[in-house]
């Protein structure tokens, strides 16, 4: 199957016509209340798990109005909500999300601002400032540490992260390493783009090294399975 991406207008007709379902359209446009109706279908599960709605990405702060509308609807429906974010959004967004009582799954990728810019293309001042703001407000926070072998997992990187976590100890629920995995490569292929970064899945040895380095600074971090 060959697709001329330049001519594609995302109408989805091709998926209806092909008898072998060779192509598929993933995702659809929905209003916040439509999304909420879908979320509420699983209400029985929130009651036993304590779970609820997590607004995730992409990056929720890029669709701030929509994300906040969802959080408002969740609050009205009496279910707990959370936001998974890289922290780069405007302060206003985090203020409002905090007002709505959301929990935060907050990425911290690198402490060194220069290396952060090199790795992600953006400075981390805003990220760390938003994070401190949320900590000051006493919000429920899980700090996520995406670890990409050879990129942000040097001894110095981890020492800086550990120092940051040490400084803010007790101001977050827990910190958790998110080891790099290659599950997204299939997605790149389907989209017809070449992946910007490809690496093997993080190994158990790498995970152990990260965790024990943090431990050597007295910082207890979980490792996501």
């Amino acid at each position: 199957m060959a697709i001329d991406r330049k001519k594609c207008v995302l109408c989805g007709k091709c998926t209806e016509i092909c008898l072998n379902d060779a192509n598929e359209l993933i995702g659809k446009e929905m209003t916040a209340s439509q999304v909420m109706a879908e979320v509420m279908k699983d209400k029985i599960f929130y009651e036993t798990s304590g779970g609820g709605l997590t607004v995730t990405g992409g990056e929720p702060s890029c669709q701030a109005a929509f994300s906040l509308e969802l959080l408002t609807l969740a609050k009205d429906a009496g279910i707990s909500s959370a936001i998974e974010t890289c922290g780069i959004g405007a302060r206003d967004f985090y203020e409002k999300a905090a007002d709505l009582g959301a929990s935060f799954l907050y990425d911290v990728k690198c402490i060194n601002p220069v290396r952060h810019r090199i790795l992600t293309g953006a400075d981390n001042a805003q990220i760390l400032s938003n994070l401190c703001y949320l900590m000051d407000r006493g919000m429920d926070l899980i700090i996520r540490l995406p670890m990409i072998p050879g990129c942000n997992d040097s001894d110095a990187d981890i020492a800086a992260l550990a120092a940051f976590l040490q400084e803010h100890k007790c101001r977050y629920r827990y910190a958790q390493i998110m080891p790099y995995h290659a599950l997204g490569t299939g997605k790149s292929e389907k989209l017809g783009v070449s992946a910007a970064f490809v690496h093997d899945n993080a190994t158990d040895a790498e995970k152990n090294r990260w965790q024990s380095l943090f431990a050597s600074y007295g910082i207890d971090v979980k490792v996501s399975q």
């Binding site: 029985i44 599960f45 009651e47 036993t48 798990s49 304590g50 779970g51 399975q225």
Partner: peptide, 23 residues
């Protein structure tokens, strides 16, 4: 198998089973 290797995974499964039974 992975699902049942962590406490979080087990807790998630227990919540799922309890929800099914409660409903």
């Amino acid at each position: 198998k992975k699902m049942f290797c962590s406490e979080e995974g087990k807790a998630a499964w227990i919540a799922l089973a309890k929800a099914y039974f409660a409903a």
